[in-house]
Design a protein around this nucleic acid. Structure first.
Lengths: 148, 148
DNA sequence: TTCCTTTTTTAAAATGATTTTCATTTTGAA
DNA sequence: TTCAAAATGAAAATCATTTTAAAAAAGGAA
């Protein structure tokens, strides 16, 4: 059976891009840090551990390329940096996030939950939805426990 | 009856901040441009028309202050700049956005639409929601017409 | 293989948004 | 009026990200 890396390689090739060693190292870091919401700088530092010669600009270019190909999602929690999440394979919809305003933790919601809302928006606003971003800011279960 | 500006003034005073001429000029620009999703630079240029002595740093500081006091919402559509929206008075919930990937237009959805989703999230993830951000990316009704 | 063209990379410089610094001005309370 | 704190403006600094330019790598054709 085909590995995730191999499928990404094919995906790149089908758009006539190569899976260079630098790109592969970057993808591997993303694979090892799913759900971690790494910034470009985070990714850079992690890639550097195994491939010290890589440049920050290459990481940025790779993340941009992967975003274009919809292999990763670029997200923004309003803290001044973009973060990059590997897309779940076969996921029809982008996952949602829970950002804790106490401790800063970011949890993920894989369920869609928006089918009904999207149906309403498409019909009522006559808007053809291609993608969405939903983030809740609040207090996570861990911090709720702390307070009591 | 009390004007919007006066209520904002009281809001500032209740946190022991002053409504200085610069702050008032900034708020007035926001009041005159609701739904326009102005960037700090946009606000600065508009404020400058009436108050040419104002500095960009002051506009940034004012927008930050208004954000802290929840008088404005700072939003980010992933285009590299933060945008600032005056909050609807008495609006329990932040409004949502429709971003057109063809023409870049940003439309607003004032309806909540998320009550059910939030109830599920609060219960199932045991997360105490304080705020949310929901943005749909897709094709607006204007661009759909163009294509046909 | 060798040559050639294209893609990719690197490091450094450039850019652009935002924040900080610091000297000056304004403010409100005593 | 006097004083300390708050606010401002201009410039400098910062930080994330992008661009540049030259070198390296990759792939295909002869």
């Amino acid at each position: 059976m085909e590995s995730r890396i191999e499928r990404i390689k094919k995906h790149l090739h089908s758009s006539s891009y190569k899976l260079t060693p630098q790109r592969e190292a970057t993808v591997r870091v993303l694979l090892e840090h799913e759900e971690d919401h790494l910034s470009a700088e985070d990714v850079y530092l992690l890639v550097k551990e195994k491939s010290p010669e890589i440049g920050l600009a290459t990481v940025y270019r790779t993340l941009e390329l992967l975003t274009e190909l919809k292999i990763v999602d670029k997200i923004n929690f309003g803290d001044g940096v973009s973060r990059y999440d590997l897309r779940q394979e076969g996921a029809a919809h982008f996952h949602h996030h829970l950002v804790c305003i106490e401790c800063g933790a970011v949890d993920e919601i894989q369920e869609d939950l928006l089918e009904d809302v999207e149906a309403i928006v498409e019909k009522r606003w006559n808007f053809q939805i291609k993608d969405h971003r939903l983030t809740f800011h609040g207090i996570c279960y861990r911090c709720q426990d702390k307070e009591e």
